[in-house]
Design a protein around this nucleic acid. Sequence first.
DNA 1: TGACCCCTGGCC
DNA 2: GGCCAGGGGTCA
Length: 281
Amino acid sequence: MPELPEVEIARRNLVRWLDAHRVVKAEADDTRIFRGAERAAFARLKGRVESLERRGKYLLFTFEAGRGLLAHLGMTGKFVRRTQEQVQPHSRARFHLEDGAVLHFADPRLFGRMEPVPAAQLRALAAVQSLGRDPLVDGLTGPQLAEAVGPSKQALKVALMDQGRLAGLGNIHAAEALFRAGLHPARVPGSLTPEEWKRLARAIHATIAFGLKEQEGEEPVYLEDRGAVNLFRVYGRAGEPCSKCKAPVESFTQAGRTTHVCPQCQPLGAQRPGPKRTPGR
DNA sequence: TGACCCCTGGCC
DNA sequence: GGCCAGGGGTCA
């Protein structure tokens, strides 16, 4: 699914496409990607895109004339560039460019979201305001991670995916970062040492960098959609031997999501993952 | 704070 | 043919 690296790749592609050619026409189908937002306002987006920012998994478009768009790819959304003749399955919204190309927002499951708003209001939207630190945009050190995630009473992985604490990590990259850091997803955030926070911050950066490197290119193919090729270290590998120690990778459910973990490389240790335990530090 | 919901392609 | 996947919003 689109998490921080996938959305960042989408942003880079869009910048490249939209820098070169203005939008001459925007149109969108009547689908639930607009939720409560005004679909007619989407059709008024045109001209040059002055800036395109990413915060967590959100894209913030600023068009000329003060028009703006907040976009979220949901779980299956992607932006692709096609010719006018090419048919794009599940196309929900389109930008027609002056060179004749068409940028489609394609989203089979309709979990994505488009919200046209005046550009001046983009940053004030609740969805954007409530986002925590973005590792790529804001940087992320061990102490900063500890400050953002440490106070959470939720399991470590659940807290990492809390967009209000840290913006951009989803189920896959959170699991991968924890594996790289050798930390169990069920650890209590308050129990991590400064050294562990540092390791985790580094692991998050490494996971994001890997995702960016693997997915750079014109056509988005999400890592988990690459057929038999699983490039992840633990995600989707339940029952397989761990790439480091050969112990079988395990999976369990946390907050309704599947978590993958190597019990050897990511020991839970002596800590009781039980509730209410005042964080030691 | 957690359970549920949306939605459909892909896989068993 | 049925179940699973899950980001994020909503609700109890």
